[in-house]
Each structure stands twice: as C-alpha cells, then as structure tokens.
Design a protein around this nucleic acid. Structure first.
Lengths: 209, 209, 209, 209
DNA sequence: TATGAATGAGGGTTCATTCAT
DNA sequence: TATGAATGAACCCTCATTCAT
C-alpha cells in the first residue's frame, strides 16, 4: 500500500513476524495444549530464535490471551456483520452462523474451550465476558421466541448452554470430505435444535404404556 | 479384616498409596491440566517423596492412562449395572444415567475429554475404543427407536454426538446449590433430547411466512 | 557334600545367590562400566529385588572390590599352581600363562584394568598391591635372565610394563573362531616378546645407510 | 584483534565457553569416567549454570564424542604434519611420534581408550573408523618393511596391535620427573619394538638344552 | 528486530540404600 | 533370605525469560 511505502521495513517485518507467531502458536496450542508448547517450538516454526519472540509478545501468556481474545472479538464482530435474508428465523441464523464460523476455525475454537484454565485470572475475566456476550445472543433469541410462543424453553440459559455445547462439539469429529457435507450438517443440527425448542408435548413412556 | 490378616502390611500400604496417587492426580489434572502438573506436586499431595510414586506407576503418563481407562470401564460397567423400571423409555434411561453419572464425577469426565491429546498414541487408541463402545449404546437406542418409528433421526451417529456433547457439557457449568436441582436438570435435558429426536415436522420460517 | 546336608537350605540358597550376583555384576560391569550399572539391573539379572542384594553385599562398591580382588588372588594362585616342563624358559611360561589365563577371563581382566579408578582409596590400595605382586613375577624373570646374559633389558620394570601391556591388550581384539587360534596367538606374541628382550644389537637406519 | 573487531562479542564469548567446557569435561572424564561425571560438575568448573552448557553441546554424549573425535583427527593430522629426517627409519618415526604425542596428551589418550563403550553406536562407529586409519599407518610400515626383508613379522595386524598396546600403556605409569626422561623412554621402547620385529631367530629353551 | 549466551527454576526420572514385614 | 515401599539425593535436560550486542 502507498501508506506503507514510507514506513521502515523493520516495522513491516515485525508485524509480519508477529502474525507468524500467532499462527504458529495457534497451531501448536491447538495440537498439544498451551502448557505443552514451548516458546522454542514456536520460534522454530516462525524461523526465529526464542529471544526474538519477546519483541512481539511480552510473555507466552500474552500470546494465548491474544489468540483467545481476538477469536472472541472476531466472532462477535462476524455475528454483527452477518447478513441473513430478512425474514429468516433468528434461531436458524444463529445455528447456521455458529456452525459455519466454528467449522472454519477449528483451532481457534478448540483452544478457546480448552485453554480457559491456562489464562491468568485477569485475562480469564476478559475472555469470559466476551463469551457471555456471545451466549447472550442466543439466550435473547430463545427468550424472545418463547415470549412469542414460537419456542418452548423452560430455562433459556440452560437451553443456550445445551445448544451451544451441541453445536460446538461438531468440529471435534467433522472432517471435510466425510460422508456429510457442511450443508447437510447444518441442516441436521438445525432440525434437531428447532425440535428441541419447539412447543410440542412429548408423551413419556409411562403415559403411553 | 480377617482377609487382610495374612497379607504383609507393606502390600496393603502400597495399594493405599497408589489410591492416593490416583486421587491426587485426578484432582490436579482436572484443575490445571496434565501437562501443567508435576510429579512433585502429586507426591506432595500424597505425602510422599517424588521417587516413591514410581513404585506405583512407571511414568506420569501411566497415571493419566490409568485414570482415563478406569473412568471409561467404570462408566461402561455402571451402565451395564444400571437398572431401570422395565417399561422405561431406553432414551430416558440413557439420558438420566449419563447426567447422573457425569455430574457425580466431574473431574473424571473433565480429564477424559480434555486430556485425550496428552495420551500417547497407544493409550489413546485404548481409550478411544472404550469411548466408542459407550457411544454405541446411544446410537443403538436411536437406531432401534427410529426403526420402530418412535424417533426420527436422519443420522443416528450424528445425533449421538449431538446429544452426548449436549449432556456432557452440563458439569462445566452446573454447580450444586444453584437455582436448579439435579432432578430439574435431568428433566429439562431429557425433554430437549426427546423433542430433538421426536418424529415431528418443524415448519421453517419461510414456509410459515 | 555330607557337611552341607545338615545346613539350613537358606544358607545354601544365599551362597548361590551371592554367586549369581557376582556373575551378573561381572558381566554388567565389563559391558557398561561400574558407574553405568545400577543395582536394579544386577537384581533383575539375578531374578531378585534390589533390596535382596544387600543381604549378600553391603554396598555396590563391595561387589566391585570382591570381583577385582578375587580376580587378582585367583590370578596369583593360578600362577603358583601352574606347572610347566622343568626346563622350560620361565619367560615362555609367563607369556603363555598370561595369555591363556587372560583370554579365558576377558571380563575379569577388563574390569580389573578399567574400574581401578572406581575403587575407593582403601580398596584401590589392596588391589594395587596384588597387581604389583603379579608384575613382580615378570620383573624377577627378566632381571634374573638379564643377570645371566640370556636377556638384554635395560630396565626390567619398564620392560615388564611394556610386555604386560602388550599381552593384556590381546583380549580386546581376539575373538574365538577368528583367523588365528589361541595357540598361534601365543606363539606369535611369545616370539615378539623373546626378540624384544633378546641380547641382540639392532643397527639404526643411519648406520646401515 | 582486528579480525575480531567485527564479530559480536557474544559469539566470541560462546566459543570461549565451549572451549572451557571441552577442557573441563576432558579433565573430569579422564579422572572419574564419563558416567561418573555430571553436567553440574562440568558447569561448576566452567563457571556457568548447567543449562548454559546446552547452548554449546546438545547433550552430554556430544561432549564426549567431540573430545574423542577431535583427539583422533588431531592425531592423524599431527602424523601427517610430522616431519622427520629424510632417511629416518619409518618405524622409528612412528614409535617416537606416538610416544611423544601420547605423553603430551595423557587425558585425551585415556578417555579415547576408556570411554569407547560409552559412545552411542553411531558415534562409536565414527571413532572406530579413525582409530583404524591410525593403526593402518603402522600396519603399512610393518608390511612394507617385511616385504623388503628389513622386518620379520608373521602377521602385521597382530604386530600392530601388540606394538600400539605396548606404547599406549606408557602414559598410565610415566610421570614427568621420574627416574627416566621422555627421551630415555623413547629409546628404550624403540629398541624393544625394533628387536621385536627384527629378522632374527630365537632359540627356544628346549633346543639349547 | 534478531541473535546467542546465560540464568534460575524446575521438569520427569533413576539412584543406592534402608527397613518393616 | 526376600519383598515392596520409601527416602533423599542426584541425574540429564528443558523451561520462560533476560540482555548485551
């Protein structure tokens, strides 16, 4: 870009290195877990000596925090930016969005759920707040739907957790090229979610017996 | 006890120490993650010097494998031993069993899902096989129910994963003494699961518009 | 033996175990070096737990000392017991005896030369005294032969060391079934030794030019 | 120095540290044996913390390999560089060279013979190849001398081993300031070696009786 | 911005040895 | 005599991080 042309090359190189650090750390953390990954490994992936990492991130913990926080903000921003046909069911929007976004970012999703405990308390609080904001989106949809009679959920917070757990589990087993396309996955899960919150009565075994 | 009278005390002491190692490791692994826990910490918890741990487990990895494998075998055995009223819906049996069992054993469940990647390949294969056996129970219930028309699931394997992910997420947020009793949790989730696999049609937004 | 018949079996078993410990330690020390061998390895070879070794030898060091000391005393006793044709050259006797004895006991010889430094000072002094006694045998032969004019050695102590170093090196490369028989080795070395101490003049290069 | 002026100081410091590691390890390995020396001891000698050693040598084994390999290559290079009066007997050249070189480097020689078994197989093969190259020098001298009738050796390979064992034993007992000068040692051994391979007949005891 | 050297702490594991049984 | 459990010290090595260059 023209705006970059006048910047010293080292700045640009540094930004690029920071990006490579993020990328390498993401892959490693997702694969082996934060605690099992060493700064040396990340440095090797980046093609740099360990000491150089500290020009870009003050500590290893900061790399983790950076990855998790930017995942959450990207996620929320992506939801805000997502556009659906005007008359689409909000629940359908959310389910399809969640599945798509998470399937495309398996590594980020994975560390966001697995490495929470490796965040120092301060960082944990920040991430958790973002996560609650995201969950609130679904809770809100469910509550509004329940109020309108479209959905039947006894406890929207519990239903939110149930649905998100169900959806977020997909990337742990879904593989591209498997016997189901991403579209089919979306449809299958959407159907299950809809039924799960649908205002229908299920007769228990005892009652039918 | 009379049955212990003839055994040398050292043997009994050893068994007890091994048990304490398991217990301490379980708590630590669940709390901080396998990679972040040191043998020294476990030894301190047990009240023993680090070297003594190696009288009971050849490596740290073996402690993890022991915990994960015994969790899976206990789980399967518990299912086999579980007795329900004869005419109870099998799906209800499974859901209630799963929730109860997992809520009582939050630590075991947690490490069983979190530490899979820290298992050496050989051990991973063993655990995975057990896990698949457990999932097969639910898949079987769903397939039989679908065949009889009681349930409508397009893909029993996918539905199995969806349901188990949903249920297994409970211990991550459920706390005793919260605003929901365990019984209420069971009922709420059972209802959602039943509806999710019920043979009903959901009208999409577009169709109703 | 009749005298053993009345002894408790445990005594006999203990003696047998001690012998197995010696044998296992000898093989291990020769193969890997005293410092690199653990009591656990020896115990495993013997088919016993590590603690049991201490019923037979008070420390690891004592096993080494036992092996080295008994090797030296056996060697000296064997020399005393060796019988040669009355008119055989004493140097030939010594050379043939040394080669034979050492080729038959490669492990003992090896550790006797390699593990000297791992002996605690007290034990070292004992072994060294025995070694000097053995070397004195050859020195004496050389000195007597020099006095009688049969040999020409300028310094019998130096010649002793030279010859013993030469002979003791054999087991490091000699393998049974190689292209030379033990008998041929003996003859070759005896010839070299004899010539080396023979009362002959060697013309230097310059003088012959 | 002008040549160093452009090098960063840290690089120079590192090279110096590596040299100090080599020196300390050499002394320690020679004194107590590879297996009995700890990295902590070496670090203490060098004046550095144990971890710093790993900036210069990847493992303890690599220090040993470095010492043994450089000893062998130095030895071979020194032989190539050694210059003797043109008409000097090659055997004399070799004997004098070997004694001088080995007396000046008692520690290197010692570990080169004692620590062979502590080399991992791969490293062992490398060192052994160098050793054979060195022995081949003497074998060649003996074979050429035998062909010309100057020497009588029945088996040049065996004679090589005998002579080298004899000469290499010197540093184990020779002490500067003893009753023999290095020059006298050379002369004494040279004389013995020459006679040992001289084309003379020795009458056996029986034949003279 | 990147390097190579160094630190100080700590990692998993093994050691020779002791001791009650 | 042999065992299994335990000790206390030490092992080699790796860690995240610092810093002069």
């Amino acid at each position: 870009m023209a705006t970059n042309a006048t910047k010293p090359q080292s700045r640009a190189k540094g930004l690029e290195t920071a990006g490579r650090v993020r990328k390498a750390a993401l892959k490693r953390f997702a694969g082996a877990g934060y605690a099992a990954v060493s700064m040396r490994e990340i440095a090797t992936d980046v093609g740099v000596r360990p000491g150089a990492l500290y020009n870009h991130f003050p500590t290893k913990q900061d790399i983790l925090k950076d990855l998790m926080l930017s995942h959450m903000t990207d996620l929320l921003r992506a939801w805000d930016a997502a556009v659906f046909a005007q008359d689409t069911d909000p629940l359908e929007c959310f389910v399809r969005f969640h599945i798509r976004y998470h399937l495309e970012r398996a590594d980020e999703v994975f560390i966001s759920y697995m490495e929470l405990r490796n965040l120092e308390p301060e960082n944990f609080a920040v991430i958790e707040a973002e996560r609650r904001r995201y969950e609130a989106i679904l809770t809100d949809i469910l509550e509004k739907g329940a109020a309108s009679g479209r959905y039947a959920v006894e406890d929207a917070r519990v239903a939110t957790r149930a649905i998100i757990a169900m959806l977020t589990g997909i990337p742990t087993w879904y593989r591209e090229g498997g016997h189901l396309s991403e579209q089919q996955i979306e449809d299958l899960y959407l159907n299950m979610v809809r039924k799960a919150v649908a205002p229908i009565a299920i007769n228990s075994q005892r009652e039918t017996g």
